[in-house]
Design a protein around this nucleic acid. Structure first.
Length: 884
RNA sequence: GCCCGGAUGGUGGAAUGGUAGACACGCAGGACUUAAAAUCCUGUGACCAUUACGGUUGUGCGGGUUCAAGUCCCGCUCCGGGUACCA
């Protein structure tokens, strides 16, 4: 039979759909369960690109394999469909985003179905569906009504928060609000003038542009919803250790959380009855503190500044606040600052040191004030050099270069590594760490500070509160009402979902209000006592829906509960989660945070959502440019002996590898690939390109290669002349069992490229032999089926079966067949292989040595000398060492 | 700057410290064909030989450990990703 992939694929896709072949089992008694999840896509108008099927194919292979291994598999797909593009389109055309979204989802669904992915479509979800975002709002209410008990390291219902009895009503509310995980407050936020919305710190790239649109963001002070994710920093950090995730991603999360240990130290301010508290990771360098710096926004700046310095400090604060609008990067590197006129007292030696204001100290981290140790901190060193502040070396550096050592000791170079302390004792205070090293110094100074009540050891985190609102239309509305008397309330669960109003215009307000503010009818509410209120006009960021979607997949149609908790207990955690590394920090961290809150509230049964995570690599594509840099579409390029030229003009072109983009004219559309080679070839090629986690370029020639393999498999296996009943040839049997073993191991470890190559090797062997048994053909078809499911079903049918092979048991391999009688030993002399010799596997080392030495070919290499050593590694190698 | 990856033929890549280059693409030669496509067979790291069933060399660079290094250790170079005044 010819490989008519077009008919075969259509036929089986129809079969699977009609028979609901991949419907998730409702039987929760099978102890073997496997939840296999893809990062669900944002359904863009452009449709699928070849990057999507990479991860989807990987999880599909894994799911199909697990089903054959007898597991209950949950393998769902859905749409992360809130987002800006649909809203921008609505602004331009007036088309409601829900219509655009529906069309895009339809396209994505069709394209995905054409890949033969074994999703249970009955479990499909869409974050924009009120039946879904009802529960997103429900979770928000839970966040709002939860506080974090630091002692228990656990989120608890706000009703369990003890409030001091003497507080007045207003103070009480204020106190409670200060504890809620979700709170509404003024915040200095990043505003994107292009998108007309705020965005999270995490969404601003380090060149000061918005990651979504590439435009420069500005600072604005706005009332916004924030989530207190830093309270969970320690839990989020500790949880990482137990996860089966790529180490690189774990590191990125750890860095993002940014735990650092140190101490808070109080400095007396001369002439004022106040303390200035600093955070430092190096309390051991207190003797080297020669000045202090406070951030411009520090609450004490005003009171510390002396009359004389008042105007220059105020000027400085003004310019530095403007500067953050101008540029966060280049300008900010050049250090600036002014003297406050005031001095502080260094607690270890009672020395007077000047207090400066400088914006290299950040308000949001630590206490917003530092002690500056220029000799042992690069930033302080730069600042001190610029403003001629004293630099006192207090550590004899561990460095060999004597010139460098002298420069450091003279305070002419900064030293941040370890060394023995010098100049670090004081008779009056009694502190002395001279001669100690860093580790011991930190311990001793911290102890001393604590004993004198001058400081405490302290842990700080980089992670900040998460800005959780956007001034957009197409997002989840907050179930929140702001009342005229200033009270803020959340809606009752039974009032959910709060749906979006229909609008005529989707343009956001210029003042930073969302388009929702235009809908009077929706906006204004009155309670039963006639009190007027206004709904929250911000909507939730796109992260909200994806924070918990894996939970809804478990029970997507439940309209009474967020999910049935028996089902949740059964399916959680996600056993395998595959997606792009671009979500390494944000989505995965946010999602873990919500999950932990839900866990603390007893809503979910696991502490972590995603047990095993894997990131697929990006797929790049070749692009071609002319001398002038003009981009040329791939189909106009001719290759000859490694050189590229324009088919029409003949002009010389050069090849580059880059991200797929319209401007580079190198976008590969999966639809084109499936129509030309079929979905099985697309799937196989995506997996055969290389290891799943690396970035790799798309090459159509490679698709031809796997297409050839599938064609050969089809022709060979469906030709009855090649298939016989009887005893299998031992070589074929061995090859088959080797292949089963290899494919099984490779699927478990997600090494799909080598699994495919081993199946190619087997097919080459079978073709060479010309005939295999029905049993062999059946087993081979089974192991091929997760990779090329359409073709495998067809072959399976032609082998005389009338049911889908999706739930056929995975074939076992038999170690007996893998055993070899002989091993072809490479014989090397001084590590260089010279010849091979076939020997029985059970020979003793002595026997092997004897045979090898007596071999004629050995004489040539040994000559007249005597081997000084002979290494025999059974069934691996013989190495004869000859000293010249 | 800091953290994490990576570097292997013309190309994508393979290799528990044990025969480097599996598998595939490409290329070359051959078969089939009037011809092309498709398909099938053979060869294919480089260099030197070519009478060989031959030799030399070879995994970014420089050292080291080892009987044996693509793999382990030390020091670099280049490329990719993340992050950045976080005290």
């Amino acid at each position: 039979m010819d490989y008519n992939f077009h008919d075969i694929e259509k036929k089986w896709q129809k079969y699977w759909e009609q028979n609901k072949t991949f419907k998730t089992s409702e039987d929760l008694t099978n102890p073997k369960k496997c939840y296999v999840l893809d990062m669900f896509p944002y359904p863009s108008g452009a449709g699928l690109h070849v990057g999507h099927p990479e991860g989807y194919t990987a999880t599909d292979i894994f799911s199909r394999y697990k089903r054959m291994k007898g597991f209950n598999v949950l393998h769902p797909m859905g749409w992360d469909a809130f987002g800006l593009p649909a809203e921008q389109y609505a602004i331009q055309t007036g088309t409601h985003p829900s219509i655009t979204t529906k069309n895009n989802c339809d396209t994505f669904r069709r394209q995905i179905k054409e890949l033969g992915l074994s999703y249970d479509w009955d479990k499909e979800i869409n974050t924009t569906d009120p039946g879904y975002f009802k529960w997103t709002q429900w979770i928000f209410i839970r966040l709002y009504n939860t506080w974090f008990d630091e002692k228990l390291q656990k989120g608890r219902p706000i009703s369990e928060l003890s409030v001091a009895a003497h507080l007045g009503t207003e103070e009480k509310i204020k106190y409670i609000n200060s504890k809620r995980l979700a709170y509404y407050d003024n915040a200095l936020v990043w505003w994107c003038p292009h998108c007309c919305t705020v965005c999270a710190n995490e969404e601003v790239l380090n060149d000061g542009t918005h990651e979504k649109c590439g435009n420069r963001v500005e600072r604005r002070n706005l009332k916004q919803w924030m989530l207190r994710i830093p309270l969970y920093a320690e839990r989020l950090l500790k949880g990482i250790d137990k996860l089966d995730w790529p180490e690189g991603i774990k590191d990125m999360q750890r860095n993002w959380i940014g735990r650092s240990t140190g101490a808070e130290v109080d400095f007396k301010v001369e002439g004022l009855n106040i303390n200035l508290t600093v955070f430092t990771t190096r309390p051991d360098t207190l003797f080297g503190a020669t000045y202090m710096v406070i951030a411009p926004e520090h609450p004490l700046t005003d009171s510390i500044t002396t009359k004389d310095q008042k105007s220059s400090v105020e000027n400085y604060i003004k310019t530095s606040s403007l500067k953050s609008d101008l540029d966060r990067t280049d300008l900010a590197k050049e250090k600036t600052g002014v003297f406050t006129g005031r001095y502080a007292i260094n607690p270890v030696n009672n020395k007077k040191i000047p207090i400066w204001v400088a914006d290299y100290v950040l308000t949001g981290y630590g206490t917003g004030a530092i002690m500056a140790v220029p000799a042992h901190d690069t930033r302080d060193f730069e600042f001190a050099e610029k403003f001629n502040l004293p630099i006192l070396c207090i550590q004899d550096p561990d460095v060999n270069d004597s010139e460098q050592k002298q420069r450091i000791l003279d305070g002419k170079e900064c030293w941040t590594e370890d060394g023995k302390y010098i100049n670090s004792s004081d008779k009056v205070t009694g502190v002395d760490i001279n001669g100690l090293n860093k580790e011991a110094g930190i311990v001793r100074i911290t102890k001393w500070l604590e004993s004198k009540k001058l400081g405490t050891s302290k842990v700080n985190y980089k992670i900040r509160d998460w800005l959780f609102s956007r001034q957009r239309y197409w997002g989840e509305p907050f179930p929140v009402i702001h009342w005229e008397d200033g009270e803020v309330t959340v809606m009752n669960d039974d009032e959910l979902p709060l749906e979006l109003p229909q609008l005529e215009k989707y343009l956001p307000g210029e003042s930073g209000e969302s388009p929702l503010a235009n809908s009077e009818e929706w906006l204004n509410v009155v309670d039963k006592n006639g009190r007027k209120g206004r709904r929250e006009t911000n909507t939730m960021p796109q992260w909200a829906g994806s924070c918990w979607y894996y939970l809804r997949f478990i029970d997507p149609k439940n309209d009474k509960l967020i999910f049935d908790s028996e089902k949740e207990k059964y399916w959680m955690p996600v056993d395998l989660y595959i997606g792009g590394a671009e979500h390494a920090v944000l989505h995965l961290l946010y999602s873990r945070f919500w999950h932990k809150v839900l866990f603390d509230l007893g809503i979910v049964s696991t502490d972590e959502p995603y047990q095993r995570l894997f990131n697929q690599g990006m797929i790049l594509a070749f692009a071609y440019e002319s001398e002038t840099g003009a981009k040329v579409s791939g189909d106009l390029v001719e290759e000859r002996e490694g050189k590229y030229s324009h088919k029409e003009s003949g002009a010389e072109l050069h090849q580059i590898v880059a991200k797929m983009s319209k401007s580079l004219k190198n976008v590969v559309n999966p639809d084109d690939v499936t129509s030309k080679y079929g979905a099985d070839s697309l799937r196989l090629y995506e997996m055969f390109m290389g290891p799943l986690d690396v970035t790799k370029p798309w090459d159509e020639k490679g698709v031809k290669g796997v297409f050839g393999f599938l064609g050969r498999a089809c022709r060979f296996l469906t030709n009855s002349e090649n298939i016989f009943t009887g005893n299998e040839d031992p070589e074929v049997l061995k090859g088959l069992h080797q292949t089963i073993k290899k494919v099984e191991g490779d699927i478990e470890s997600l090494h799909f490229n080598t699994a495919i190559s081993s199946m190619m090797i087997f097919l080459n062997l079978a073709t060479k032999k010309g005939k295999i048994t029905t049993d062999t053909a059946a087993r081979f078809t089974k192991i091929l089926s997760p990779f090329a499911p359409h073709l495998s079903e067809e072959v399976w049918q032609s082998l005389g079966n009338n049911k889908s092979l999706a739930y056929e048991p995975w074939p076992d391999f038999n170690e007996e067949y893998l055993k070899e009688d002989n091993f072809n030993y490479p014989v090397s002399f001084n590590g260089k292989t010279r010849f091979n010799i076939e020997l029985p596997v059970n020979l003793s080392k002595e026997e092997i040595i004897k045979i090898v030495l007596s071999d004629e070919r050995s004489r040539k290499w040994i000559g007249n000398s005597t081997p000084s050593n002979i290494i025999v590694v059974p069934n691996r190698i013989v190495n004869i060492v000859i000293k010249p």
